[in-house]
């Protein structure tokens, strides 16, 4: 099959301006995008820079955007991308500092954030029977997370990183989960404390893009949610988050559904005059448009008592 690759180019040693090179290639039917890149470099343009290593979707080196979507070049089969025409565009990830062509700065993109969550285990000093133990069930869950090979697909899919590059991102938060939930860790609160700060777990909007992107089905969003529950249940929660959560829970418990007006004021804190003042312009604007839910003027759902019963029973079990 004949395919034209339109590849993103940038050379800091020349003018450093982004451009594009087109390469027309004859490829085998089962060729991958990485095969194509190697062919280009070997046969037509040795100046093209890209990363690639294992060639079997294992190491994560060859992450790039194929026709706009993040893929591992070595597992992306060329025929899957030519259905709309014989052209394929290749670009570095979104929002990454590009070094040259398809090579970008992994440290800024992911490794610095992984380092920030203290990605190592400090075992208990006084283990039972000479070594720290973990049960099979606990390890089964952790092994899934440990199958992460840091390809960065989850961070690429993340919808927060494009607007806040300092957000820790799903890859680093999943790493934090791996340590916080390891029973051999002496202080599992440590990682929770790190990721509970701004730019951590509470900045996730749980859009589930990370889960949809992860090639190992590790479900980073599920891990972030688990870290949130852990932070909340062990009292390591930022007070604004705790207030928001408590108000939401109280409203569902008392009436079966959410009192939005109440949530707005109680999240700020009833004694937080400055915070409440901040709400006023929005509240006034909403009021004039008939869109302001008045706090505490909220009707109970029929069967609210039955919902409350389920709520309280589930809460009891958690403890």
């Amino acid at each position: 099959m004949e395919v034209t690759f339109k590849v993103y180019r940038k050379d800091p040693e020349k003018d450093g301006k982004p451009g594009r090179s087109n390469y027309a290639l004859e490829l085998a039917e089962d060729a991958t995008v990485l095969d194509a890149l190697l062919k280009i470099r070997d046969e037509s343009d040795s100046t093209l820079a890209f990363r690639g290593c294992c060639g079997r979707g294992y190491c994560g080196e060859c992450m790039m955007r194929v026709n706009g979507s993040a893929r591992l070049a070595c597992t992306a089969k060329v025929p899957d991308y030519t259905k709309r025409g014989p052209e394929i565009s290749l670009d570095p990830l979104r929002n990454v500092p590009v070094i040259k062509d398809l090579v970008f700065d992994w440290d800024a993109f992911m490794w610095n954030k992984i380092k920030a969550v203290k990605p190592w285990l400090e075992p208990d000093d006084s283990p039972v029977n000479g070594e720290p133990l973990a049960s099979e069930a606990e390890m089964r869950d952790l092994r899934k997370v440990m199958s992460c090979f840091y390809c960065g697909m989850c961070d690429e899919g993340c919808t927060v990183l494009p607007v806040d590059f300092d957000f820790l991102g799903p890859a680093a938060l999943t790493k934090a989960y791996r340590l916080a939930f390891d029973p051999r860790n002496k202080d599992s609160r440590e990682q929770v404390k790190i990721v509970e700060k701004p730019k951590g777990i509470w900045d996730c909007v749980h859009c589930y893009e990370a889960d949809e992107h992860c090639p190992r089905t590790i479900e980073p969003t599920k891990r972030i949610v688990a870290l949130r529950d852990r932070a909340f249940n062990s009292g390591i929660t930022h007070e604004a988050v705790a207030r928001h959560h408590a108000s939401f829970a109280a409203s569902v418990k008392e009436s079966g559904w959410l009192d939005e007006g109440r949530l707005a004021v109680e999240s700020e804190g009833l004694t937080n005059v400055k915070g409440l003042m901040k709400l006023l312009p929005t509240a006034a604007k909403a009021l004039t448009r008939g869109k302001a839910p008045i706090p505490y003027m909220h009707s109970k759902r029929p069967d609210a008592d039955k919902i409350k019963k389920i709520f309280e029973k589930a809460e009891q079990e958690e403890k």
């Binding site: 959560h245 079966g256 959410l258 029929p302």
Partner: peptide, 9 residues
Amino acid sequence: SVGCTGAGV
């Protein structure tokens, strides 16, 4: 007569 979904909160 049904409850809130929890909204991910």
